[in-house]
């Protein structure tokens, strides 16, 4: 017998009586998404938030604050003037020296400050992890209150890879001292269009 058959037979032989899945409808009751809560938590987890009215304002802030950064990349067509858009077919290793990656997010979660990106927004899966700083553009109508609401929106959508990203990369492995920028971005900026 193969390992597969042995394991499945052993599991089948050991598993207890049927119990049903619980009803989790109560967790899906709509709760109002609060951009103030989102902003508070985003800052508590080490990111910076900018409230902006449109993509033009995003552009202005990026130009003002990050003009000096040598390598900026984006997948947002409207930002083509201020960041490189011709990196789509690149070998992921070549993104090693990216100073700032500017990407769209599909969702923002108010209870934990996480944003949801699929590989469509990342273009290369490694982009939001390898860049020195990550900037996310999100419209306020994409905010949801809880993780349950987030998965309601995600539903059974198709993606090869997707991730909830909550703040810059961090570690507290050395005596519980929080350090931003363990392996991934040292800074995370969120532009909330509202």
């Amino acid at each position: 017998m193969s390992a597969r058959e042995r394991i499945l037979a052993a599991v089948k032989n050991s598993q207890p009586e049927h119990t049903p899945l619980p009803d989790i409808a109560f967790l899906k009751e709509p709760v109002l998404a609060s951009k103030e809560q989102f902003a508070t938590i985003v800052q508590a987890i080490g990111a910076t938030i900018f409230f902006v009215k449109d993509i033009t304002e995003v552009k202005e802030i990026l130009q003002e604050k990050f003009q000096q950064l040598p390598r900026k990349i984006t997948s947002i067509a409207a930002l083509a003037g201020i960041a490189d858009v011709n990196w789509i077919a690149a070998d992921p290793h070549s993104l090693e020296n990216v100073d700032l990656a500017i990407l769209d997010a599909r969702l923002g979660v108010c209870e934990n400050g996480a944003v949801w990106l699929t590989e469509n927004e990342m273009v290369q899966r490694v982009t939001p992890f390898i860049a020195d700083s990550l900037a996310i553009v999100l419209t306020a109508d994409k905010l949801v209150a809880t993780m349950h609401a987030a998965y309601e929106v995600i539903g059974d959508s198709q993606y090869g890879f997707a991730s909830f990203i909550a703040g810059p990369s961090k570690t507290a492995d050395i005596e519980q001292s929080l350090v931003l920028g363990a392996h991934g971005p040292r800074n995370m900026f969120i532009f909330l269009i509202h």
Partner: peptide, 24 residues
């Protein structure tokens, strides 16, 4: 939705880990 809410609050008191990556 349930397990990601429970995991890091129980572990370190964070509302969620920085990265919750879904490999499909």
């Amino acid at each position: 939705g349930i397990f990601l809410r429970l995991l890091t609050r129980s572990a370190t008191g964070q509302p969620i880990t920085t990265y919750s990556s879904h490999f499909k």
